[in-house]
């Protein structure tokens, strides 16, 4: 079984190398190769906060340096494992250096939360001012642009009306369709082309980026 996988991976590597870089055939072949390696479950695994970064760097190494693979020296998995373990070592070393400089505080994000969604900060406790500021901007319309731009033939459906409806707590698109007697696709196209642009510019002007 193992020998089968080794053989399959060697063939995929040889096949990939035949195609020029950035060609569709090479990309397809690389996609197949990554899938086959991942599904074999044979790549080195460990529970470390650096693991995912080291793994991504290993995939990059595979895709960029595939011509470096020498089938006479190692199996594909052994070749990649060596790279993966070296990256883990490098990243661990970088973390130690960081901790030394910062008096042993681990860098932010290294705590390795078990479920990041559950660990999202309780935003209700400290509501960021962004909603209030955006609502105030949309209501006061300082440049007069929000209340002047409207859907063709519907002067009542302006950028301002739509933005105020779509800021949280947002009115669902289906309900807006009934309320404004206008098709969702018409509302959404206008929203995407005009309202999102206004929101983007306001966000940039507030220095939120």
């Amino acid at each position: 079984m193992d020998a089968d996988i080794d053989q399959q991976l060697r063939q995929l590597v040889a096949q990939t190398c035949q195609y020029p870089r950035r060609s569709l055939q090479r990309r397809r072949s690389l996609d197949q190769l990554i899938r086959a390696i991942a599904q074999s479950g044979k790549l080195w695994q460990e529970n470390s906060p650096d693991y995912e970064e080291a793994l991504q760097q290993t995939w990059l190494y595979l895709c960029r340096k595939i011509e470096n693979y020498n089938p006479e020296r190692a199996t594909v998995i052994t070749w990649l494992d060596a790279h993966l373990k070296q990256r883990l070592k490098d990243l661990r070393w970088k973390r130690w250096q960081y901790m030394k400089r910062h008096r042993r505080q681990p860098p932010p994000g290294w705590e390795n939360p078990t479920d990041p969604i559950e660990n999202l900060p309780d935003t209700h406790a400290n509501i960021p001012p962004i909603l209030e500021e955006t609502l105030q901007w949309a209501e006061s319309d300082p440049d007069g642009e929000l209340s002047s731009a409207h859907i063709k033939g519907r002067p009542d459906i302006t950028c301002q009306v739509l933005i105020l409806h779509r800021l949280p707590p947002e009115t669902k698109w289906v309900n807006l369709e009934t309320e404004l007697k206008c098709k969702t696709s018409t509302l959404a196209t206008f929203y995407q082309r005009h309202c999102v642009t206004q929101l983007r510019e306001f966000g940039e002007s507030q220095g939120y980026l």
Partner: peptide, 14 residues
């Protein structure tokens, strides 16, 4: 990407 702009994210699911 608009993901970097929190005001766009506030008003649109992008």
């Amino acid at each position: 990407s608009d993901l970097g702009n929190p005001v766009v994210c506030l008003g649109a699911d992008v």
